[in-house]
């Protein structure tokens, strides 16, 4: 992975407290696992940023090296890798995800 891809990924993670590296976009997920995580984040009313790895092959491969995790999607909260689809499902079911996302929910004025 080139250093500027690594820097680009690090900057994205530092900039967005809740960031999902996924296949597709929030409105048009291109894979079942990415869709599941987007759905869970929306149900938690989380404010999150999506990175469509299908648009950038360097990021698509770079994030796997960066996280030492071979699959997409990947969710980061406050700079920490939380997990892929399986783990996000489990954290959602046992209520831990809601706690992690508590500070980042959409506040309707």
């Amino acid at each position: 992975m080139s250093t500027d891809t690594q820097t680009q990924i690090q900057t994205l993670i530092n900039t967005h407290p809740v960031i999902l590296f996924m296949k597709g976009t929030e409105d048009f997920p291109q894979c079942g696992f990415s869709y599941q995580v987007v759905d869970i984040l929306q149900r938690n009313r989380a404010e999150f940023h999506c990175v469509n790895v299908l648009e950038d092959e360097d990021i698509r491969q770079g994030i796997k090296t960066f996280t030492n995790w071979p699959t997409i999607p990947q969710l980061y909260i406050q700079g920490e890798f939380v997990g892929g689809c399986d783990i996000i499902n489990e954290l959602h079911e046992n209520g831990e995800l809601a706690q992690l996302l508590a500070k980042f929910t959409i506040t309707t004025a």
């Binding site: 071979p70 699959t71 997990g83 892929g84 783990i87």
Partner: peptide, 18 residues
């Protein structure tokens, strides 16, 4: 942790996952 458990399996299947 669950994360570490999955990482262990992913390391075993690293080549195939590619």
């Amino acid at each position: 942790s669950r994360l570490a458990q999955h990482r262990l399996i992913y390391s075993i299947l690293a080549e195939d996952l590619k």
